[in-house]
Design a protein around this nucleic acid. Structure first.
Length: 275
DNA sequence: AGTGATTCTCGGTCGC
DNA sequence: TGCGACCGAGAATCAC
């Protein structure tokens, strides 16, 4: 499940592999991945003959900058990119293939087929869905304690739902929200507007810290995540809450529990994170 | 208007 | 071996 640290790791490894490569053509095997332009053929024509000039990231989105266009890619749960020779046989989960002029392919594989791709003329990408509603990414200068205080204090939703909301903060997903709330000693069902200024400050700091720490370790490998080079992340060894249900809390020994909050499996320590 | 619940995309995994 | 329930990011839709 690629969240911000996994997408950042993919961005870095992929950059080394595809920068300056020229797209000769694109093959699309599962149209639902292509969200915009709606017509596959139009999508294909736009990226064809373009060179990859940069790979950026915002929240969980990868942005492949070409010469005139930008490809906005979301991996959702299981999407991955592979760079292989064009002779390599396709797998049954290969849905989009970018053929480079040097004889290599960049292949998008996605077991669940949930991933999305959008292509826009450069400059339009932040004006339209899906990037136009995105909140600040914790590694951007617009991510400030004041902003987080402002947004968290004026909603009555549970803090879990608020932190998962990409229009508030971009990049946190189920794994890292559970980790942030554990590190901040906050119960996932606390209503956001009941949090003290100190608690919000802690969330602000821990969110950035835990994401940075995970990036440093190459992300978290749950299920099948691997980076652009096919390597696994190591952050799963550092998890305190996510997936730790039934195991003793590292801080107090109480067993970590799993409940459902905001429709998501939620892991927390009932002792350290009391309501 | 804000919130939450539901539905939809999909297929691997798990329990029975 | 088979079958249904479950999971989950994010958008859309509906109910309150």
């Amino acid at each position: 499940m690629p969240e911000l640290p996994e997408v950042e790791t993919i961005r870095k490894t992929l950059s080394h592999l595809v920068l300056d490569k020229q797209i000769e053509d694109v093959s699309i095997y599962w149209s639902n991945i292509i969200q915009y332009p709606e017509d596959d053929e139009e999508f294909r024509i736009k990226v064809r003959d373009e060179r990859i000039t940069n790979i950026a990231r915002r929240g969980k989105f990868l942005l492949f900058y070409l010469e005139e266009y930008v490809l906005v890619s979301h991996l959702r749960m299981e999407g991955k990119y592979k760079i292989v020779s064009k002779d390599e046989p396709l797998t049954k989960h290969t849905h989009v293939v970018f053929h480079f002029t040097d004889g290599t392919d960049m292949r998008y594989e996605d077991v669940r087929k949930f991933g999305t791709m959008h292509v826009f003329p450069i400059g339009e990408e932040f004006k339209k869905k899906p990037l136009n509603q995105l909140g600040p990414d914790p590694f951007e200068t617009t991510y400030t304690p004041e902003y987080v205080k402002e947004r968290l204090s004026k909603t009555s939703r549970t803090i879990k739902a608020t932190l998962l909301d990409q229009t508030i903060i971009a990049g946190l997903g189920n794994i890292y929200v559970d980790e942030v709330l554990f590190l901040a000693n906050i119960h996932p069902e606390r209503r956001s507007h009941t949090l003290t200024e100190q608690e919000i400050e802690t969330i602000y700091i821990k969110a950035k810290e835990v994401l940075q720490h995970a990036i440093d370790l190459g992300g978290t490998t749950i299920r099948s995540y691997v980076d652009g080079k096919g390597e696994m992340g190591m952050f799963q060894q550092e998890l305190y809450a996510y997936g730790q249900d039934g195991k003793p809390c590292d801080h107090c020994g109480t067993l970590i529990e799993k409940i459902k909050v905001a429709g998501r499996g939620t892991h927390y320590c009932p002792e350290c994170q009391s309501l």
